[in-house]
Every structure is written in C-alpha cells, then in structure tokens.
Nucleic acid binder design. Structure first.
Lengths: 126, 126
DNA sequence: GCGTGATTACTCGGATACAAGATGTCCGAGTTTGAGCGG
DNA sequence: CCGCTCAAACTCGGACATCTTGTATCCGAGTAATCACGC
C-alpha cells in the first residue's frame, strides 16, 4: 500500500501555491520548471485538484492556476483525497452478509489516520 | 491507495486458524474450499505469512499450516505488514536534502494508523 | 513381523499469463490577451 | 484613434504508450506418512 507519485506532486504543488502570493496565477510551465515535470502530466494533476475545488484555473493568455480555497483551511487530507479518491482501504466481498468485521476494523484504522491528516494543514509546514 | 485482496484473504485465513483448534493443521485444500480460492494462489499468501513467522508449515502427508505465534498476540498490523511489506506510505525524492517535511507528516499519519492496528488483535473480533 | 520400496498426500517455489493501474507523452481544440493594421 | 483580425499564450481533455504490480494458474520438485510386498 503506497500513495502514488501524483499525490506527492500534488502536495508539493499546493504547498508552492500557498507560499506564493495568492493573487498571482502560476502557469503550468512555471510549475513544470519548478518541479522538473512535464507540463502535460502536471496538467492532469491540476485538473484533479481543480475538480476537488482546491485550485481554480483561468484559460487563455495571462491565465494559470491559483488557490481556490482559503489557504489556512487546506489540509493534507483534502489534497490526498483529491488525487487518491475516497475509496475505503479495504472492501471485503467474502462475507455473505456484506458486513465483514475485518473491514470494519480497517475502516476505523483509516479514520484514525484521516483524522490526523484532516487536522494537519499544509500551511503548518511552511 | 488500497490494500490488496491478498491482505484481506490473509486476515481471514489467520482469523480462521485462530478460531480452529490450534493443534490441528489445516491443509491448503481445506482452506481453499473454505474461502473459494485456488490452492496454488493461497499457498503464495501462506508462504508470506510463514516468512513473517505468523504461521508454520509442515510438508508431507498429514502436513498443513498452523499458527506459529500465540494467538492472543497476533495483531492486524502483523498480518497486514506480512503481506503488504513495510515500505513507507510516501517516499519523496524531490527534496534535495532528502528530508522532506511532507514525507514526515505522512509518516506520522501512518504511525497513527499503525498504532491502532497494532493494538487491535485478530482474536478480539471472534 | 519386519524392513524396504512405492504410492499418496502434502508443501515449496519458479515460470508464465493476464488485467489493471500508475506514469507519462502527444496533439488537437477551446479561450483570452494583446499587438498590428486598415479605415 | 477606433475597431477588426490574427497570432500568441494559455488551459482542457481524449487517445495513446509503457511499465509495474496485482491476481492468479501450471507444473515440477521436495518431503513425510502410509501401504504393500517380499523375506
């Protein structure tokens, strides 16, 4: 079980956007140079962050990406779930009654971690 | 981020072994029938549990698998790590100094979950 | 009845097959800004 | 100087390509118990 690289990139991107002046839009080319990634691949990640409402994009010349949410409120969990999705860690299809005790324990463990990640804001580490 | 199916199987297998009389060895065919899985695939999982020291195997006729550790001590974390490995959730290779703050936060979140899973024993749910 | 060998019931592990997801790349399409040009 | 057009600078998103990993199967090898057989 591991987070994808895209999740790591997303966290760094959000951290970068938070630490830059919030008015300024960052072009995808700027970000690509910053993180040594291809612009097209980065745009995939930013699309996900946009759909999650963390970032807003303005097309056209002078366009770019900027934060869409108040920077004090963006948590690690927000970013991670934007990229990884919200599917539960383990879905058990073995129990007939569809109510597996093992799955419940894993779900509780996941909640434990998510609580931690929800309280930890990106801005805290800057 | 999801646990593999094999992890789910492993948890169920250990639960089954705990609830069966501990002296009795379970053949892989018995387990395969129990969980509707192919014997050869199951043996892969049991090999991992064996290498982790949770289960012991005796080859030959009248052979089979049985618990190798005291059943009160086997935690969810033990089983999960036997199958999933112990690699950290996120490894950041972007920071030059190899000391990424983001990675530290994720590591702490993971510890939070692992603590929960280490205290929760399989026998608790039976 | 007692060894000895063959058969049977098991586990072990390498090789292979297939599907899905992660990780990118390529390219055409849409959108806004701004510069250039003609009246 | 005004308005129109066109190019430039952007994002958007679908279609690929490739690699790794998960999920499994097949099969031959090793190992221990048991059965059969001959002495």
């Amino acid at each position: 079980m591991k987070y994808t690289k895209a999740t790591n990139y997303a966290l760094h991107i959000i951290a970068y956007l938070i630490s830059s002046k919030s008015q300024e839009k960052s072009s995808i080319y700027t970000l690509a140079e910053q993180f040594k990634l291809s612009p097209t691949y980065l745009s995939k990640i930013l699309t996900q962050l946009t759909k999650a409402g963390l970032v807003s994009s303005t097309p056209g010349a002078k366009g770019g990406y900027q934060l869409a949410a108040p920077k004090e409120t963006i948590s690690f969990l927000d970013v991670i779930q934007a990229v990884e999705g919200r599917a539960p860690l383990l879905v058990c299809d073995m129990s007939v009654n569809h109510n597996c005790v093992i799955q419940q324990v894993i779900t509780n463990a996941e909640k434990e971690m998510n609580n931690f990640l929800a309280e930890k804001k990106i801005i805290d580490i800057l």
